[in-house]
Nucleic acid binder design. Structure first.
Lengths: 165, 165
DNA sequence: CACCTGACTACTAACCATCAAAGCCAGCTC
DNA sequence: GAGCTGGCTTTGATGGTTAGTAGTCAGGTG
């Protein structure tokens, strides 16, 4: 397998995961509409009708999602006013929201590779300054890219003692 | 914003995304149960009752998900037999399934940071050989890690001409 | 002040994901 | 061959997600 366990997890025979971050994350943003709204937000969309039009989600759902995601803390509302119009709210991503970029684009990257009929899908990421293709993947804090095979999972608080297999 | 558009996407005023990979991906694996099963599979789980026990998902759902994910092509079934038992099937991740590692662990990483009461959540990724902490994030093909601010999105087939903003 | 528009909100009616509990079935044990 | 066990499948019931339609409401325009 691609990942090995270390520390207390080396024997998983009786182990079950509590407080799983993935489950918690899916409870919060695990809907199609949330992901599409986040895709738009990460691409720079800030206004209600832009979200609705670009995601093709009904206004009712967009309103409900934006409200929910704002309560959770992924968006903050900021009033704006165009000349001759009344004041409205823009929905701006918080740090918490921006931190979802890897998750959202990792999903896009996977869909591009495996779900698209033609090569690549409609959008892709590049480095702005060079145009070099960008992928989402594992990397160390010091900036080295890694293979999935080079990974291990540890329980929080543990350190790596003797990775098996 | 963190991402700029280039090429035909620079003016998005009338633009709507067709064949969105994120939407397609969410249609396929956008459920809590799929993500939890994938988490387990990426961590090395291969057998039915291990999936059910470790994810705490009911057997009915695990059976339905494994069947669906196998049809889609994320798993292949491989028969095995323990001594004194009848033959069963193991569920092994395909290349397509393993390619979801960044998406699944990006979600875990986000949950660890933003949804956990205590610091960090129950699990984290490290490099197997060194124990160095690992994060999921954008990087170039040549292996450099990038900031979200350094990214641009282009339509497939385009090249970067003059990134705005 | 009556009207219009843009940004939501409310309501209804699907549909889907999930669970609990029961049922089924292959093959091993006795 | 009768029973047991592990690996599913089936069957309601429940709650969350969604679309669609209609309604509300603030404020600018005439």
């Amino acid at each position: 397998m691609s990942i090995t366990f270390a520390g207390v997890l080396a024997d998983r025979s009786a182990w079950r995961l509590e407080n799983c971050s993935i489950a918690m994350a899916m409870d919060v943003i695990g809907t199609r509409s949330s992901m599409l709204i986040l895709r738009e937000a990460l691409c720079g969309t800030v206004r209600f009708d832009d979200f609705a039009r670009r995601t093709r989600i009904s206004e009712a759902i967009v309103a409900a999602r934006l409200k929910q995601l704002t309560e959770i803390g992924l968006f903050v509302k900021q009033p704006y006013q165009e000349p001759g119009k009344r004041t409205r709210d823009e929905y701006l991503l918080t740090e918490m929201g921006k931190d979802l970029l890897p998750a959202v684009f990792a999903l896009m990257q996977w869909g591009n590779k495996h779900l698209q009929a033609e090569e690549g899908g409609p959008l892709r990421l590049v480095e702005r300054s060079t145009g070099e293709p960008v992928t989402i993947g594992p990397r160390t804090e010091s900036g080295r890219s890694l293979d999935p095979d080079g990974l291990a999972i540890v329980a929080n608080g543990d350190w790596v003692d003797s990775p098996s297999s």
